[in-house]
Design a protein around this nucleic acid. Sequence first.
DNA 1: TTCTAAGCGAGACGGTACGTCTCGTCTTGAT
DNA 2: ATCAAGACGAGACGTACCGTCTCGCTTAGAA
Lengths: 196, 196, 196, 196
Amino acid sequence: MPNPPNPARRSQSSRRAILAAAAELCSELGYGQVTIEAIAARAGASKKTIYRWWPSKGAVMLELIDETATITAAHPDTGDLAADLRTQLSAVIDLLTPAHTSPVAGLIAEALNDPDLARDLRDRLIKPRIARFKERMRRAQDAGQLSPEVDLDVALDLLYGPLYHRFVLHLGMPDADHLDVLIAHALRAVDPSTNT
Amino acid sequence: MPNPPNPARRSQSSRRAILAAAAELCSELGYGQVTIEAIAARAGASKKTIYRWWPSKGAVMLELIDETATITAAHPDTGDLAADLRTQLSAVIDLLTPAHTSPVAGLIAEALNDPDLARDLRDRLIKPRIARFKERMRRAQDAGQLSPEVDLDVALDLLYGPLYHRFVLHLGMPDADHLDVLIAHALRAVDPSTNT
Amino acid sequence: MPNPPNPARRSQSSRRAILAAAAELCSELGYGQVTIEAIAARAGASKKTIYRWWPSKGAVMLELIDETATITAAHPDTGDLAADLRTQLSAVIDLLTPAHTSPVAGLIAEALNDPDLARDLRDRLIKPRIARFKERMRRAQDAGQLSPEVDLDVALDLLYGPLYHRFVLHLGMPDADHLDVLIAHALRAVDPSTNT
Amino acid sequence: MPNPPNPARRSQSSRRAILAAAAELCSELGYGQVTIEAIAARAGASKKTIYRWWPSKGAVMLELIDETATITAAHPDTGDLAADLRTQLSAVIDLLTPAHTSPVAGLIAEALNDPDLARDLRDRLIKPRIARFKERMRRAQDAGQLSPEVDLDVALDLLYGPLYHRFVLHLGMPDADHLDVLIAHALRAVDPSTNT
DNA sequence: TTCTAAGCGAGACGGTACGTCTCGTCTTGAT
DNA sequence: ATCAAGACGAGACGTACCGTCTCGCTTAGAA
């Protein structure tokens, strides 16, 4: 009976207004203070319209991030792997900072208590970005910058792990120099031949 | 004048009942369903009593964890560093799993949107455990199991980072074999002389 | 320019389906549960179509009643005035009962908070029926069954008043015997020569 | 589980503020525009507090009327029955007029679509007032102003019926003169010896 | 016979109010 | 003074209808 809505008739202006309102409120008040009510009021949209297209506030934020954070997904390829990784990891740090008003940080926190959202977060945001990370790493292997033996899953854990470890336990993000140290350790761990 | 309460007159039976109720509710219903109301009802305590002694539900859970999870803080010392790390990291994984009913996972999530709680989490739970990790590592250095040059902060990041990275992005915890692989990589990264 | 719709092009099948749906919903769920949404869904009609031809749910119900309840308007004339009045007043009681699913009762309730609807109710439903009541009474006067001096407005009040009084204050409708008593009193009041 | 609230701990100031807000809104905006939301906002009360003590807006209005309209229940006794009835019936007319902002009129309308409210309206408001009407009539009988044979239920119907008949069908309330005519007819109907 | 203007179904939209829920504070009376 | 109990103000939740709107699709006469 409660037919799913027809996406063809969806109002793009409402969608844009809702995502924009969500972004504004998050940066102004912090993720925790964003509510469906406030988004609707700010967007000049009806709550029903939000609930029609998204199951929860987290789903709105996820879509917002998905649109906004495409840049971060793009791994540069200057030929210098370590430098390119530093560039990309710095972008991730910026995405997570400051935690209070970061949609990504808030979404990650919310997903920890919402299995549906967790699945969407992983499948729609994280996995594609992991795929692009691995593409970049394979290009490095093809170009002889990295041993073809390297386990890319381990590389992922060692490169991104420290960031999320520090983020989630509030230990402070590494500065530029320390980021270099971490990258150098990670690359050496997976590829002892690396001479960084 | 809202005088601070007098700890000397605090009812220890209320405190115990509240912490016990919080633990039960968390394992029964999941962290997200635990509310101050429910804790008070289950404990036969007044909400006012809870608010008198703790600023938030997260603070209650933190105190609960602090009492419960002392074991995990203890790093074994069998003389085999890699094996001891595997034991301890496995215990950490168990503490975070299953995310839905784990007080630690819930507390970490909540702290991401509550700066006061984040500070308490870091200073009262995390930092002491990091100190014990470093003590164990220093013992390994003293025993010649590990190079005295090793940067223990980097080691911390490389060993624990992968766990939190996977936990927070819902990528699945490593199984026993993979955990060994990760530990071996981390130790090799910080101490190339390691022959694991 | 919101042109008024062209009645010549009106779909009679839609009109019938809408009125039928309204009648069904009212008897199934009660007047209060009938909504424009539900009528449209049941009738397979668009809400827009309903709003095009009727200003409100009450107006739909009024038109429904106007079509249905023509019988009640017909005052029988067997030559026995008291008996004929009992017949007609019984029909009115049936129209108002049970209050929960009676379109007439619901419409009367709704009109109490909607002046436009109240006017339509009075002018399109009530006044024509009052006129037929007075015609019957005048025939009784012409036939010598009732004094030509009788004030027909007072007679109307005394005959129908008790019904609406009891209806609106939920005092229970008179049974057949009590109805006779009321009619006898009313006729005696307006025409002391009546020997009932 | 959902314990009924404890009346002993009820806040009288909240109760007074809620009833006062309801009265103000009804006279300012009309019964139909009064909402629980608006009452709560005007009263500085929480919606929860209203729902805790009253099942619906109608129940609030009923309690308001019960407190306010005690005067109307009082039948004067000057020794002149017809005059006293005119006084009291005029007061009833005033209570019902203007329909738009009259809490009584609105409540009557609402009760027509809410059986629970209808029962409360009848038992808490109407029946006690009918009892006082009958007391006054019995005093008239005792004083020899009215025949002891008179059926007081019929008298009630004939005296009040015309008012509710006209009210509910929007036929216009009787003016003072016409009210006298109606009272005279009603008294004559129940007591032919009356010489009014 | 094609054109064109309207009514039609469907249903998304901005709103408003609903009745419920949880929060953190406040009040009361017993210990 | 602390406690259990729980009422309170506040305000977000998700739902239901409201009345308006835009969209294609019939479905007429009119050209």
